[in-house]
Amino acid sequence: MTYSFHINGHPVEIGSAAMTGLLEVLRDELGLRGAKPGCGEGRCGACTVLVDDVPVASCLYPVALAQSRHVRTVEGLAAPDGPLTPVQDALLEHGGVQCGACIPGVVMTLTALLERTLRPTPDQICDALVGNLCRCTGYHKIVEAAVAVGRGEER
């Protein structure tokens, strides 16, 4: 059985076993190693990707369910040789990145939030981020970055 879906706008066909987690498919089959296997149990959020524009924990998402859907990963946000997206840029500008292992997931969660909510409040941002664990930053600078994007301070 093969599964056909879109990754970052490009169609792909995947021959993985049906209940393989999307994370494993992204990393091992498609070479997209941005999403991280932080816990493998759906509790850290480092593997967050967007499926039809909503954040999901890709380690808990069976590849079979991706059939005909649109998957977006951190690699698909900015062109590799192009400028950063406002969310990515703001995270650096505000010092929201330390070890960075959680950051691909954080970027996807914030991207989805800001696509729906133009000017999120800190409370809305924290609610959106509660499934993205960060052990380094204490979250403050990540929240500041998202607020700044909402205010249009980033491009």
Binding site: R27, L32, R33, G34, A35, K36, P37, T73, V74, E75, L77, A78, P80, L84, Q88, D89, L91, L92, E93, G95, V97, G100, A101, I103, P104, V107
Partner: peptide
């Protein structure tokens, strides 16, 4: 000066190669 980190671009693009990668 609060200069940006040299590994920052790779980290926010998901391009940084961690031990797990």
């Amino acid at each position: 000066a609060s200069v940006r980190r040299s590994d920052g671009q790779d980290k926010v693009r998901g391009a940084a190669v961690y031990g797990m990668d």
